[in-house]
């Protein structure tokens, strides 16, 4: 028996919104420690890795590990039936071919349940090595979203260049060029407004805008985003979920021909 109850059900709705652009289907791996998911987009350029720790749920029971393969478009249809203030419970029997979502209003006067068919998915699991990144940038997630949106008007790719002084995002296209520079700025009133750079050595990497824009669907999950970069390895874009876990995206760089 698997059962996970989340009073803050809106969080689950936001998590799904943050991945359904990139993934049509994925397997939610449920274990005693929590729920995790790892999947690449269909072109194998980006990867989503998320973790929701069991202690972040209000009630969590997982007698044995279960893999819940889901069509995320269908899951999103069901999640749209939950109000933002609903309590959400996910339930599945061991070896079941369906999953049940229960939505309760805070006053418990309305209780809805939706049963969805599960899928058997061939899941490729990639081993992601621990990496000491040359540059780690922490910045407001809304700012990152804005920059990705703005520069995707200019070109298909963004060059992210990071030095001790700051981080620069650049795009070039038929109409011309655009650059956005952010200086390191830790002395702000609110922690979530800070731009903090930890640099071992400068890096400059090129990434496709359309994936970066998809990653920014996670913006409502966290006030800050962390970009981890080293030369010639995938970028990591991480949104930390308070007391719960994380949503991470990996993106392969573009290289000079």
């Amino acid at each position: 028996m698997f059962e996970a109850r989340l009073v803050q059900g809106a969080l689950l709705k936001k998590v799904l919104e943050s991945i359904k652009d990139l993934l049509n289907e994925a397997t939610w791996e449920c274990a005693a420690t929590g729920i995790s998911l790892q999947a690449m987009d269909s072109s194998h350029v980006s990867l989503v890795a998320l973790n929701l720790r069991s202690d972040g749920f209000d009630k969590y029971r997982c007698d044995r590990n279960v893999s819940l393969g889901m069509n995320l478009t269908n899951m999103a249809k069901i999640m749209k039936c939950a109000s933002n203030d609903d309590v959400i419970t996910i339930k599945a029997q061991d070896d079941a071919d369906t999953v049940t979502f229960v939505f309760e209003t805070p006053n418990q006067e309305k209780i809805s349940d939706y049963e969805m068919k599960l899928m058997n998915l061939d899941t490729e699991h990639l081993g992601i090595p621990d990496t000491d990144y040359s540059c780690i940038v922490k910045m407001p997630s809304v700012e990152f979203q804005r920059i990705c949106r703005d520069l995707s008007q200019i070109g298909d790719s963004v060059v992210i260049s990071c030095t001790k002084e700051g981080v620069k995002f650049s795009a070039a296209g038929d109409l011309g060029t655009g650059n956005v520079k952010l200086a390191q700025n830790a002395n702000v009133d609110k922690e979530e407004e800070a731009v903090v750079i930890e640099m071992q050595e400068p890096v400059s990497l090129t990434f496709a805008c359309r994936y970066l824009n998809s990653f920014t669907k996670a913006t409502p999950l966290a006030p800050q985003v962390q970009l981890s970069m080293s030369s010639d390895v995938p970028l990591v874009v991480e949104y930390k979920l308070e007391d719960m876990g994380y949503v991470r995206y990996y993106l392969a760089p573009k290289i000079e021909d």
Binding site: V45, H125, L126, G127, Y250, I255
Partner: peptide, 14 residues
Amino acid sequence: STSQITLPVFFANQ
């Protein structure tokens, strides 16, 4: 110009 590489180039299948 640049070309896109894929993730399995970096991460091994487990």
